[in-house]
């Protein structure tokens, strides 16, 4: 994006502006001194630079963090990829959670299907049935997926996987090549399905007496198994504080709790009996260096070896009983 001014800091107007607008707002205090959007948008107003703190951000620094993509294509990098080329990438890096056809594994999000379901009692909101823009898919896969290793895909891989997810939604052909130039042209089925917030959309009255007919009040729903002698605190799960369990929850549970890719489930003796003969230390080594579908350290490099060891011990403590 072009910059009007790169280094100019103070002009005469800016000086006045800066002084006039100096001040801060406390709770519920009026603040006529603050500039309005219109004022700030005025071409006469230049950066105030009143404090001058911080360093100028260089184009290279900005480029490293500026990852956002807009529906008009602003932000998309050069690159390309076909749905066909995305298939294996998707199968290896996405299907364990989202399913080979985008159907979702367990409670992980469903990425395909649901066409025409938006008015049904149980709408299925997916990329194909609900998302208004393909740019959002590129942006999100690049920014946040795969879940355990965000920002690990290169631009061509993101193009290819995006194309493949679109293909899973019957929006492009198998041999379709997605590029920076044709992405904005992809017309998503629910593109026009959104409108800007127009609430308030309801209007209750401030009635005080005889607001309903006496005897007309009836209970329409209650939680299942709502018995007045049940104590909700008993049913609730208390968040654990054990270090090993904390690491397990953050780094390991997403595969191990559900047994994704045949990861052994803590507490399931069948999954563990054979492995236990390896001994704790060998298993720990295997976790640190990766084994089968398990990435090194379970995919989270920020944990120390000791943290991973604590998590292994926690898992084993669950599995011996």
């Amino acid at each position: 994006m072009s910059r009007l001014l790169s280094t100019a800091r103070i002009s005469c107007t800016a000086m006045i502006f800066a002084v006039a607008s100096y001040g801060c707002v406390g709770d519920d205090q009026t603040d006529e001194s603050r500039a309005t959007v219109a004022e700030l948008n005025s071409p006469d107003i230049r950066p105030a630079g009143h404090y001058g703190y911080g360093l100028d951000a260089s184009p290279e620094e900005i480029a490293g963090w500026d990852i956002d993509i807009r529906p008009d294509g602003v932000g998309l990098p050069e690159g390309s990829g076909t749905a066909e080329g995305g298939e294996m990438l998707y199968e290896n890096q996405c299907a364990s959670c989202h399913g080979s056809f985008g159907e979702g594994v367990g409670r992980y999000p469903v990425l395909s299907g649901g066409e025409g379901s938006l008015t049904e009692a149980r709408p299925e909101k997916t990329v194909g049935s609900f998302w208004p823009y393909a740019s959002t898919l590129w942006d999100y896969i690049h920014r946040a997926m795969p879940y355990t290793e965000p920002e690990s895909l290169n631009d061509d891989e993101v193009y290819a996987i995006t194309a493949y997810v679109l293909y899973l939604n019957d929006l492009v052909d198998y041999d379709f090549e997605l590029t920076r130039h044709n992405l904005t042209g992809i017309e998503m089925p629910n593109r026009d399905g959104f409108y800007v917030d127009d609430r308030p959309d309801v209007n209750n009255e401030l009635c005080m007496q005889n607001c309903k007919e006496l005897g007309s009040v009836r209970i329409t729903s209650e939680p299942e198994a709502a018995e007045s002698d049940s104590d909700p605190a008993d049913k609730a799960v208390v968040v654990p504080t054990l270090a090993g369990e904390t690491v397990y929850q953050q780094a390991c549970a997403l595969c191990h709790a559900a047994g994704l890719a045949d990861a052994p489930v803590p507490g399931n003796n069948e999954d563990w009996s054979e492995r236990l003969t390896l001994g704790r230390n060998v298993m720990l080594e295997n976790v640190l260096s990766g084994k089968g579908a398990m990435p090194p350290q379970g995919g989270l490099a920020r944990f120390s070896d000791a943290d991973v060891a604590a998590a292994v011990d926690f898992m084993l403590s669950q599995s011996r009983n």
């Binding site: 994006m1 911080g54 951000a57």
Partner: peptide, 16 residues
């Protein structure tokens, strides 16, 4: 980092 349609793109620390 504050950038885009601004006069002076900056990088601020918590101290700033």
């Amino acid at each position: 980092m504050i950038h885009g349609m601004v006069g002076r793109p900056v990088i601020l620390t918590l101290d700033d």
